[in-house]
């Protein structure tokens, strides 16, 4: 999603009104309930959320100059910097060591990279198709990417062919290197 993103793609920057700010937080919690216990630490009550409207209907939400989450359609997607603060809150899958290089190059993730011995998928029933998932790597503790399931995790195990996760955001992409100033 951010492969070609540059500063030029930001159309407008504005502060989010406090009423809408409350709605946003509620929406985040509805999507990621485990954030409940840390949300006020990550987005303090007095913090000002900024909204950057960008090319391609991408909306970035920033707190203290850091992109915390973004939106393309309806769902809110956390940035990796956000994920790193509280990884437990997000559905997570793991790829094997061999897939890391490709993920960091922005490729979609192929099913075998998610089902091999070094990989990890949740036990049944697992996650539905279209779930936003955080992508971890074998022998690593921190997440390296955020993507969207192209099939349910059970289907990934069963079919084990083709693209399993659509890449949205990864370490080293322009969103990762983006700084507000």
């Amino acid at each position: 999603m951010f492969r070609k993103f540059t500063r030029e793609d930001i159309h407008t920057r504005s502060n989010v009104k406090s009423s809408i700010q409350r709605n946003l937080k509620a929406k985040l919690l509805a999507q990621y309930p485990k954030l409940e216990e840390v949300i006020d630490e990550i987005i303090p009550k007095k913090a000002q959320i900024e909204l950057y409207k960008c090319e391609g209907k991408i909306q970035l939400y920033l707190v203290n100059g850091e992109v915390l989450f973004f939106q393309n359609f309806d769902e809110l997607i956390p940035s990796l910097r956000f994920v790193h603060k509280f990884p437990e809150a997000f559905p997570t899958v793991q790829v094997d060591r061999g897939a890391i290089k490709f993920v960091l190059a922005g490729s979609n993730i192929m099913c075998p990279g998610l089902t091999s011995p070094g990989a990890k998928l949740p036990e049944a029933p697992g996650f539905e198709k279209d779930t936003i998932v955080v992508i971890n790597a074998e022998n690593k503790e921190t997440a390296m990417a955020v993507g969207k399931l192209l099939m349910s995790t059970e289907e990934i195990k069963e079919i084990n062919k083709g693209h399993g996760v659509e890449m949205i955001h990864h370490l080293g992409d322009p969103l990762w290197t983006f700084s507000a100033d």
């Binding site: 216990e37 840390v38 603060k85 509280f86 790597a137 690593k140 390296m144 370490l171 080293g172």
Partner: peptide
């Protein structure tokens, strides 16, 4: 529940455990 504190590399800005992939 405390927030996780990731150590980011001062050279490549990746979490330090991913440095081997940074070039």
């Amino acid at each position: 529940m405390p927030l996780t504190n990731v150590i980011y590399c001062g050279v490549c800005d990746f979490p330090a455990e991913y440095c081997e992939f940074s070039g």
